[in-house]
Nucleic acid binder design. Structure first.
Lengths: 131, 131
DNA sequence: CATTTACCTACTATGTCAATAGGCTAATTG
DNA sequence: CAATTAGCCTATTGACATAGTAGGTAAATG
């Protein structure tokens, strides 16, 4: 289940994409438009900055802008960055140790197939597709 | 992310499917074969019984059996039963109140499309496909 | 009637989610 | 250069879910 963090991050990115090319957008504006607590958005936006998806500038007239064009972002990288992983089961998440039952597990191929499908779906969807 | 409950449930169902047509299988056997705590499996198995996916019989020679043939179970119903929902975001889960932003949300169509894909994937996969 | 097996209620430790609180720092404008 | 505007940082919290444990009761068989 994708948490608010990933969902809010995507909404922030869409909000920025809709205003792409104009001045920087203050977080306060985004928070009001999206009806999300500005304080909570700060946490999410920090992740997006660290991942080099957006860029922030301080001072009067400051705010956030996208680093690239909307069509150059996949939804997958946005969600993966903020959620930590896109893996549908623990066995396939990056942090998991290799399961000793992997060789005999009858369900692993299913999870692998599902994982591939999810990955393809989100990485083929571009931010510009949501506008 | 699908939790251990759903994943273990599927492994229990596969274990039973592999022995379909024979005597009832005691939980102790399944727990040993699958290397899962029997105590924890009791909780999961209870869900499966309540959902009429398997049937238990007490006493010596007792255990669990499938209610139908392996090809008559979809993976989707097993996971949905034990996880509570298959929805990838809160907005689409059965318990969620209708979002007031649904009409303007630019991300909702994406979640709907994803939800449909996930649903189709798991409901088209049969238990017999995992043997 | 003793053994085996399922079934039931309750408890708990740990961790994650979804924020909130409150201040600090850095840049721009007048 | 002071005021404004906005980003940046650390810590804390309530609620809930996860992943189990513990210990007992009921039913069937031989």
């Amino acid at each position: 289940m994708i948490s608010t963090k990933g969902r809010y991050a995507l909404r922030v990115m869409v909000d920025l994409a809709e205003r792409y090319g104009n001045d920087a957008i203050p977080l306060k504006e985004i928070a009001e438009r999206q009806e999300i607590s500005k304080k909570y958005l700060e946490i999410i936006v920090k992740d997006l900055v660290r991942g080099k998806l957006i860029k922030g500038s301080s001072g009067k007239g400051g705010g956030y802008v996208l680093c690239r064009k909307p069509e150059e972002y996949s939804v997958g990288e946005i969600i993966e960055l903020t959620e930590g992983t896109l893996a549908p089961v623990y066995c396939l998440s990056s942090g998991a140790e290799v399961c000793p039952r992997a060789g005999v597990c009858k369900t692993l191929p299913l999870w692998n197939e599902f994982d591939r499908m999810v990955h393809d779906f989100f990485y083929n969807k571009k931010l510009s597709d949501l506008l």
